[in-house]
Design a protein around this nucleic acid. Sequence first.
DNA 1: TCCGATTTGTTCGTATGTATG
DNA 2: GCATACATACGAACAAATCGG
Lengths: 376, 376
Amino acid sequence: METKYSKVKQAIKSRIIDGTYTPHQKINSESELMKEFGVSRHTVRLAIGDLVTTGWLYREQGSGTFCADRTEENHNRTISNQKNIAIVTTFISDYIFPSIIRGAESRLSQEGYQVSIFSTNNDPEKEREILEKILSQSFDGVIVEPTKSAFSNPNISYYLNLERLGLPYIMINAYYDELEPISIIVDDEMGGFIQAEHLIQLGHTDIAGCFKTDDAQGTRRMKGFLKAHRKYGIPLNPKNIITYDTENKNTKPLDEIEKIISTKHNTITGIVGYNDELVIEILNLLRAKKITVPGDVSIVGYDDSFLAEVSEVKLTSIIHPKSEMGRAAADTIIELIKIRANKNKVESPYEHSIVYNPKLIVRNSTKGLTPVEITS
Amino acid sequence: METKYSKVKQAIKSRIIDGTYTPHQKINSESELMKEFGVSRHTVRLAIGDLVTTGWLYREQGSGTFCADRTEENHNRTISNQKNIAIVTTFISDYIFPSIIRGAESRLSQEGYQVSIFSTNNDPEKEREILEKILSQSFDGVIVEPTKSAFSNPNISYYLNLERLGLPYIMINAYYDELEPISIIVDDEMGGFIQAEHLIQLGHTDIAGCFKTDDAQGTRRMKGFLKAHRKYGIPLNPKNIITYDTENKNTKPLDEIEKIISTKHNTITGIVGYNDELVIEILNLLRAKKITVPGDVSIVGYDDSFLAEVSEVKLTSIIHPKSEMGRAAADTIIELIKIRANKNKVESPYEHSIVYNPKLIVRNSTKGLTPVEITS
DNA sequence: TCCGATTTGTTCGTATGTATG
DNA sequence: GCATACATACGAACAAATCGG
């Protein structure tokens, strides 16, 4: 996949898939492609030849090379009774994702769908490859957890092309703002708000917040965290807000927390964590530093995963529907496919987004602040 | 049909059809064809290229160009360039399975394979449905974690049919004794042995063992547990052996442990658990009963999952390769598919089973027994 | 209808890289 | 290590079809 002709091939294919070339549209001529990619005509012809034999393009002597109309083929394929759904995740082994997949898989297999799994490792480039693969194959629907959803997505055109080709897709956990797709999410802003509010109502006024800010979940939880402070008139020390990304998730948040609790005049009595996984690690850190939870510090998790019940300190956490979300995603995509099949009947856009309202489950990692202030 | 390359093409095609070239036979090399037809190499390659894309020939770099085997569905499969692998699990969200899938998926997607996921929920009936589906579709290989592997499997005939159809499959974590398939497993008997041996060498003589006995992993671990007792001449109280199944895994083992530790004359000082998940629950139970670990009771887990590091007591556990196992499974199935594709060359059965030797990682859930006996 | 510019189709030559036996 | 065979890539030339003027 590092040969020149395969690069050219890939580039042309991308332009078809992302909609730059529409069916029956003339693509750049061979000589133009030669200049563009700095390769010989032979190489260009090799690339185009491959795409012709695989049905992406067709050539007309004297006229040009054209983008093939794959919708007819698509049509042929939907007739074939294979029913396929693609699930695109960020991390397969992420601690709550298996539950979501389980919920979705059970419902989809019940309905005779076959489930294919793809993972992006939160890398937009990998997401692009996967979307290309999905678009060049015969899927009936796509369930996707967006990659780096906090950022403007470089693959928007692929999603738009999904829409253009009438391939239903929904997003779970988050969505790209530019798209406003049908989505199934938790109201993360409210979740972050509730996390902070809980501590505030327990009397805490000096609260640290740890958020993963390369996905929309984290930025929204942070927004809720700030909102709660504003609402209750609690001044917020900017140093108490810790943000991190996929790339430094194993180091930065813990380092920053350690910095904060190691300072002389530390008055932190509460910590809000992005998720239970992080909170468990913070718990380990605090234990090592002989800081008790909830004695010295109260701490709130997110997701209500099995991790919440695993330690000697049971975590106060925000409930995430997990497998219920998976089932809902499955039901929604199945319905969208049905609607598309009888598109003559239902003409309405049929908005189906679901927003779960988060709830707090109080366990014993949080407690009310006694009038006596804790000093380091 | 008067171009040189189409003449060459036609000539080669004729030789295939009239039987001059038989399947998997090497055809004349490019340079030979050049001389024979008095054309340039490029022209020969054009002709051959066409015949390759239409499935009449296949090329092997450094070796030659060969006549394809156009018999049966073999033909259909090679034409559709979709490469599919099925992974059949028991429980998708089981705590170590996501890691295995992740390892397998990353490797498989690298190689251009698409991964479909099926889960049996440890129900042989569901396993049957899934195998039927797999057999009726066009998968290139199957990775399966057997369902209820401790029992005689009612779906043996389906697996035999996979073999008959030449569809490669491997088993992970366990295998059905009747089949002796290519498998990638941990030596669970040794694992159970090491668990028990560790406690015995620390001076424990009254050890309870908890094993899930509807899969082969559990029965083998139990076997190792017994073997260790025999080897070290430790008498074994049958009451200390607790077995359970998928159906009662959430109640029975904990109930039984509670019974044992609640008896007046309880002298248990060590517990061997089927896996970390169970051990964490036992840990919760002991905490509730004010029994300290490892002070009063030492406890050994299995799998070395993230659960081992999550509690205030870090678990001594057996290392499970997890994602390494997934990667190995992917590599193995890919190789089997390749071997099958060139079945003319490699005639040897090519046994590829991998057995990982388990290792113990000692943390602080176990400790040596002091001379003073602990009494309840 | 023809012309000329453009575009794809066919064919040759040459060179170097890489896998196989 | 060496010869063989396929893989990739460059350059050049002419043929055939198309399209606008």
